[in-house]
């Protein structure tokens, strides 16, 4: 008799478990009910370049499995992504414009910045190369030529990391006058690449975005970045930074740090390293290093004050 009862209880228990399992998976695609933090969500604002290449999804899936934390990824330009962090609407920000990241940290909105990975920028354009900039990989000379010949250059014009880099390059090339040949699209990387494919001549793109779209358009790389032997000036480093919980007490600081730890740890490195598109590696992890790299934690021009002894 007691055996019967036990079986029945087991049956009920099993039923309840199945019912629960159904519940959790249908409600939020949730996870096992073991970890206490299961069901939490962090919001990551990041750039269109990391999102559109598909890398973020690849990174997030194992993190979500392991921690039971959902990562809501919002892809914006670097400026907008940091601005969202400033207003406390995201918990962690991954972008690629060091000067803007530094400002973010200096203003107290971000803490614990880490270098994550890098790729590089390339100057891409139509295959007929109307300004004749191919060869040499001298980006400053190439930009000067584009300006002199008045070949159409489509700029992101959206305060993104790529836009910031582009302005820096024009500055380095000594081009201060922008005529009709210079067009501000105000859109994401992929849109600008599409635009160049249809109506423009040249643009500055990050290699990842360009490779991920290469099959859709007829454009070539005219100036290579440092990955393929181009100038160091075209390096494109990505950093990740948590939103300061002292400024916005609503942010999920601990989970963000877990995410940063995951991205800059061995598992993150492996996924970044192995992520390829069309057979080419898009991003190069640089978080794990035996050499100390103190500069990644502080603004680039930061130095300890004289109070230090």
């Amino acid at each position: 008799m007691p055996i019967h009862r036990r079986e029945m209880l087991a049956g009920i228990g099993g039923g309840a478990t199945i019912g629960l399992a159904g519940c959790t998976s249908s409600s939020d695609g949730g996870d096992d009910d073991e970890p206490e933090i299961s069901g939490e969500t962090i919001t990551l604002t990041t750039t269109t370049s990391t999102y559109d290449t598909g890398l973020i999804d690849e990174l997030n899936a194992p993190f979500e499995d392991r921690y039971g934390v959902t990562v809501d990824t919002v892809s914006q330009g670097t400026g907008a992504a940091l601005e969202t962090g400033r207003s406390g609407d995201s918990d962690v920000v991954m972008v690629h414009a060091r000067s803007l990241e530094d400002e973010f940290i200096e203003d107290g909105y971000g803490v614990n910045r880490r270098d994550v990975m890098f790729n590089d920028f390339v100057v891409v354009g139509t295959s007929d190369d109307p300004a004749g900039i191919t060869g040499g990989n001298d980006v400053e000379a190439a930009l000067t030529t584009i300006a002199e010949k008045g070949a159409t250059f489509v700029s992101r014009g959206d305060d993104s990391g790529t836009h910031a880099k582009e302005l820096e390059l024009w500055d380095a090339a000594g081009v201060g006058e922008f005529g009709e040949w210079y067009r501000e699209a105000g859109q994401g990387m992929s849109e600008v690449i599409m635009q160049v494919g249809q109506t423009g001549d040249y643009t500055l793109a990050d290699r990842g975005s360009f490779l991920s779209m290469q099959s859709e358009i007829d454009l070539d790389i005219h100036v290579e970045g440092p990955i393929e032997g181009g100038p160091e000036l075209l390096a494109n480093p990505y950093g990740i930074v948590a939103v300061n919980p002292a400024v916005h007490d609503g942010v999920e600081y601990d989970l963000s740090m877990a995410y940063i730890g995951y991205l800059t740890g061995p598992e993150g490195r492996e996924i970044i390293e192995e992520y390829t598109l069309e057979g080419e590696q898009l991003f190069f992890p640089e978080a794990i290093s035996e050499e100390p790299n103190f500069q990644q934690y502080v603004p680039e021009d930061w130095a300890p004050s004289e109070a230090d002894d």
């Binding site: 559109d52 990174l59 899936a61 979500e64 959902t70 809501d72 919002v74 994401g188 849109e191 599409m194």
Partner: peptide
């Protein structure tokens, strides 16, 4: 909404219109 979809492709705040915008921007 932020046009959010999970890593497994499950939409959270991605609607038909924002998805179309995203796919078009990626050339798909």
């Amino acid at each position: 909404g932020g046009n959010i979809a999970g890593a497994d492709g499950e939409s959270y705040t991605r609607t038909l219109t924002t998805a179309i915008q995203l796919e078009a921007r990626q050339g798909r």
